[in-house]
Nucleic acid binder design. Sequence first.
DNA 1: CTTTAATAGGTATTTACAATACGTATTAAC
DNA 2: GTTAATACGTATTGTAAATACCTATTAAAG
Lengths: 140, 140
Amino acid sequence: MRLTSFTDYGLRMLMRMASAPDRAFSTAELAEEFGLSRNHLSKIMQKLAQGGHVTTRRGGGGGATLARSARDIRLGGVVRLLEEGQALVECFGPGGGDCSISGCCGLKARLRSAEAAFLADLDRSTLADIALAQPEGAEA
Amino acid sequence: MRLTSFTDYGLRMLMRMASAPDRAFSTAELAEEFGLSRNHLSKIMQKLAQGGHVTTRRGGGGGATLARSARDIRLGGVVRLLEEGQALVECFGPGGGDCSISGCCGLKARLRSAEAAFLADLDRSTLADIALAQPEGAEA
DNA sequence: CTTTAATAGGTATTTACAATACGTATTAAC
DNA sequence: GTTAATACGTATTGTAAATACCTATTAAAG
C-alpha cells in the first residue's frame, strides 16, 4: 500500500503554504527549500490549482497561495485529487472490467470499501491540523 | 494509492482455495487457471505459508490448502502480510527517519491513522465473505 | 531405490511507470 | 521590452515490481 511521491510532496507543499497563508510561494522557492525538482513540483502545483486548493498567479511576484483557509482543506480531498488515476488494484483501472480471474467482484467491493474508509479517516483532518505550529516571523 | 499485484494475486489464490477447502492446489494449477507466472505465484504461496494462512506439502500429490477455515481468515491480516515492507510514503520506510522536509511528523501520524482505518475495514471481512459462492462439484 | 511431482528459495532479467529533465509558450509586473 | 513567473507537452532516466530461470529439497508412487 503506497502513495506516490506526487501526493506526498503535494501535501508538504500545502503544509508549507499554510504556514504563511498571506504570501505567495513560487515553485522555485519550494523546490529549493525541499531539495526537489522544480519541474516536478510545478506539475503538482498545477494539479492543486485544478483541484481548487490553491490559486496561482503568473508573472513577476507571482506564485501560489492557498485558495481557502487551511481549516477548510480536508486531507482526504487532497489525496483523492493527487492520487487520481491510481488504481488500488489492476482490475480497478481502465480495461480492468474483463477480470479474467473469477471472483474478482466480491473482492472489489471490499477493497473499495476499505479505500473509502482510508479517505474518510483523512477527511476527519484538515490542513490546519497538520500545518506547522508557527508561521515564520511569528516566533516569541 | 495502490496495492502490489503480489497482494492482489495472493487474495485471489486464497479465494480459489477457499472454494474447495478439502483438496490441495499446486501453484502450477493456479498459474494455469489464472494465466499468470507459476514462479510468481510460488513466491506468493511461500509468503502465505509463512504467514500461517496456508499449509504446503511438497512431493507428488502435494500443494497448498487453507490452514484454517475461510471464516477465520481476515482480509486485513492477509493484506498486512502481503504488503509487508511497503511504505505508504517514503519517510515511513527504512532510513526515512531523517525527514529533511519539516512538518513530516504531523502528516505521518494522520497517514498512519488512515492506513489503520483501511486495514481495520478489511478486517471486518473474512475470506469466506468474498469466496466464490459454490465449491466445484457442489452445484444443484 | 529410482523416478517423478511438487515446494523452497536464490539470483538474474525484464518491463512498466513514477520521477525527473528539458524546452517553449504564455502571462503579467515593473 | 525585459524579466520573472506559471503552463504544459514531450523526452529521458531510474527504480522497483514483476517475471524468468536454475538448483536444491522433499515426498509420493512405482
